[in-house]
Simulated scan of single mutants.
Amino acid sequence: MSIHSVEWPSQLALHAQVDAGELAAAMAQQVAEAVRVAIGSRGQACLVVSGGRSPAAFFERLAEQTLDWARVTVSLADERWVPPGHPDSNASLVQRHLLRGRAAQARFVGLYQPAESLEAAAQLADAALAGLPPIDVLVLSMGEDGHTASLFPGSPNLESALDPACPRRCLPMQAPSEPRQRLTLTLPMLASARSTLLQLQGEAKLATLRAALAAEDARQIPIRAFLYSPLEIYWCP
């Protein structure tokens, strides 16, 4: 199956790249341009990114872009509830691969909070996010189970997190893989972004995306919640 063999809704813009390097470069250029436009229009820009293994090359390409990084705020779509410096920390991934060189001038708003429980940490993160500027660019990734951010099928808080009227910016979530305890931005917070990109690699994830289009409920395949608004999909084999 190729990306062109699927009937895609008109609101999904598809960008098929040759390989992961081309994908990272193309995404970095589009995100940088959106950041420049935001700074030019509003004097600042807010970029929210995803963690995991996939984004490292994209982060490195983006860090090379000529931007007024001092006017950029960077935050996370989700986080593992582990302290900065832990191998699984998304904040540490961003610090290593994105916030370096000139890009180190950006302000970073993390989600991890030390607390007596995951719920208490989520409440502290929710309060910290109150000071986040409106999101200009959101970069999502997706697992083969259809999760995005830390919106995992079967997580106890998934229904609340996917509720368009959810009053929370951040909720605790349970992942099926280690580390299980996660923090995620909720659908209303994520969907508020002016521009959203989705990074995918491999035929299996393309098949998951196709299944999401056919699914009846976003609780089955959470990425479905983002497929009915303008979305830029960057994919490579």
Rank of each mutant, 00 (worst) to 15 (best):
V109F: 12
G110S: 05
P114N: 11
P114L: 09
S117W: 06
S117N: 05
L118M: 03
E119C: 05
A120N: 08
A120M: 08
A121M: 07
Q123Y: 00
A125C: 04
A125M: 08
A127E: 15
A127W: 03
L129K: 05
L129D: 08
L129G: 02
G131E: 14
L132Q: 00
P134Q: 15
I135N: 04
I135M: 15
I135C: 15
I135S: 11
D136I: 07
D136Q: 14
L138E: 11
V139A: 10
L140A: 06
L140F: 01
M142L: 05
M142E: 03
E144P: 10
E144W: 09
D145H: 14
G146D: 10
G146M: 04
H147N: 08
A149W: 08
A149Y: 02
L151M: 12
P153A: 12
P153I: 07
S155A: 15
S155M: 00
S155K: 03
P156H: 11
P156I: 10
L158M: 01
E159S: 14
A161L: 10
L162H: 09
D163V: 04
P164I: 12
P164G: 12
C166L: 08
C166S: 09
C166D: 09
P167V: 10
P167D: 02
P167F: 04
R168F: 09
R168L: 09
C170E: 06
C170W: 00
C170H: 01
P172R: 09
A175I: 06
A175N: 03
P176L: 10
S177V: 15
S177Q: 15
E178G: 03
R182A: 08
T184P: 04
T184H: 13
L187T: 11
L187R: 13
P188A: 04
L190K: 07
L190E: 05
S192C: 08
A193G: 05
S195A: 07
S195G: 00
S195P: 00
T196H: 07
T196E: 04
L197D: 01
L198S: 07
Q199H: 15
L200D: 02
A204D: 11
K205W: 06
K205Y: 03
L206S: 01
